[in-house]
Design a protein around this nucleic acid. Sequence first.
DNA 1: CTCGGCAGAATTTTT
DNA 2: TTCTGCCGAG
Length: 770
Amino acid sequence: MTARPHSYVDPLDAAFPTSSRAEPAAEPAYLRGLNAEQREAVLALDGPVLVLAGAGTGKTRVLTTRLAHILATKRAWPSQILAVTFTNKAAREMKERIGALIGGTVEGMQWLGTFHAIGARMLRRHAELAGLKPNFTILDTDDQLRLLKQILEAENIDEKRFPARTLALLIDGWKNRGQLPPDVTDGDAQAFAFGKGRSLYAMYQARLKALNAADFGDLLLEPIAIMRAHREILDDYQHRFRYMLVDEYQDTNVAQYLWLRLISGANKNLCVVGDDDQSIYAWRGAEVENILRFERDYPGAKVIRLERNYRSTPAILGAASGLIAANAGRLGKTLWTESEEPGEKVQVKGFWDAEEEARNVASEAENLKRQGRALSGMAVLVRASFQIRAFEDRFLAIGLPFRVVGTTPFYNRAENRDAIAYLRVIAQGDDDLAFERIINKPKRGLGDVAIQALHNHARTANLPLLMAAEELAASEELAPKARTALSDLVKSFARWRQQSMQLPHAELAEMVLDESGYTDMLKADKSPDAAGRLDNLKELVRAMEQYESLTAFLEHVSLVMDLENNETEDKINLMTLHGAKGLEFDIVFLPGWEEGLFPSQRTLDEKGTTGLEEERRLAYVGLTRAKSRVFISFAANRRVHGQWQSALPSRFIGELPEAHIDAVADEGFYGNYGTFRDNQGGFSSPYSSPGWRRAQEARASARERAPIIDVAAKVVATGDPTAAKFATGERVFHQKFGYGRIVTVEGNKLLVNFDKAGSKRVMDGFVEKV
DNA sequence: CTCGGCAGAATTTTT
DNA sequence: TTCTGCCGAG
């Protein structure tokens, strides 16, 4: 490597090396410091490339450098590069880092973004071909649900028996698999409301078009359909993109796969990057298969493995590798590090309950902070979001600054969603769902009766609600009070729409909130959180200023669902394991490693071994987030739905290699940790300390006095693969739901149509044959 | 039409 | 335990 002093390197020269430079063979600065594999991954521009990048192996660096290299060597213009990520965070980071590499910001990378953002962009360009207008609304889950409820109601389907939620999940699944209504199999359609699944799906799609709206799935599905139906559009995209790059390839679902296959058809300069060991989204349709079969799909693909880890200590790496080794069917990578120092062992500690666990994490964090570690370099990573609360409470109590990442997204707060609904109606008058949301918010005397009349009129006249409202307000149909209220509202919207042409959108928003009475409503609200809501709205208006137009803002809202808060304050991070993927921290706390919680009982029940392996990968992701220290903990007792439950330490603890962990007994804790380890045939030596033995004895005698539900036994029972005791069509009895007939059997999970209670998902353990 | 009380259900993970 | 949707009274 050239040892050119830093002072010589002008970033621009480095990015665009010129022949006049003294060293013709000199490499651009951005290649420096890359190892051989990383360099290969950056330089292999032609043809398909699969980069298997283990955790902490400098994946992002390789990705960004590769893009910078393409740009710097002028192989393609920014607009000719397709770069897809899964999260907005990743997209943002990529943009920033490319800019940093080649100096200055990169303009014109319009096709760098999430699958959904790019899909939305494509769909807006060809909206008419999908029966939409270019200004279509992107619906979120909430809107989706309300729409489905309306459809179910119109179809006279009992929402109690067949919840809209279930249908939403089904439709989501179909969309993830790239299926439009005609593609849905009879079997799948059967799963909802006596085989009406398919036609309900079709109605839903029709309603979306009528509302000029698309849901998340459509952002991919519609472009696929368009490209398939219009050769010239497909050609255009295939030729447009000289280079294609996909991050987190292991997380792609069938629809995304099809989309990519179409676009990459002619030009095979496709580079995908991923790690099968970090595939944690199978539950929402991701197919690890996609990465496993890449070489088959793209013959002659170059496979590059990044295995040298730059992040974690050998101890952490050892623990993580040992754990993930329990998974079968991996592409197989061995992470290694050059670090000489083994680093501190991974600490494993048991507690009496979740509160004690939280207290301990908090005081440990405080200690480390006192030792000079930054709080912002620490993270508490949990399996399920409900676990976060205990930590929040504790951190608040002792005044430890923290930040909750990823939960209750800013735009999801009711007041913000209301404000956005007003803006949506202004931007897109056909947006009935938004209009309905705020028609009587604040209260303006438009109740069920008025809304029903409005719906009727809209249906018979075949008009969007807002236009129907205008007509209805002009007629004699409504009671005078409601009539004036409706007429006022319609006039307000007309006025606001006028204003939206001239006024900056942030000002418009302020005006709308004031004139609609929304702010007054909150001001009059005496509940303690009303003030906070007003603050949120202020924040919202402030956030809007960053966007060019109202439309740009709304697009951002629907795709991102959160504010970009580049907070720099020193706070400990609190988030789910899923949310932590792709991040790194100095110190990581992994609480709640208990059977039933992690691995999650539900995943185990639904997906069996496959699910267990995904949970294990999640644990692997958690461990590999840490640079220097990991603290794993479990609680013997935890309150779930207000009910106390006891649990055993997670089997994952037993799978951690002994050499890399340090098990700490805690006074007063009497879990049967050691017993569990012995059952697994694991070691027990670290637990033969007097503390542990005492703990176990206490546990044993406690059990004699008052037997505690043995979770391990339950796990064994439900984990039995031969447990397919039920068949479709059989009559069963359930303690709570009564008699019913089995609709589908998935592992030990049954979908049963109960005579009285309707269709429910139940575990086979809770029903008996009649 | 609105508000209050009550019963019943709910809990992974997210673009 | 907490939230949601439904029902009846004012």
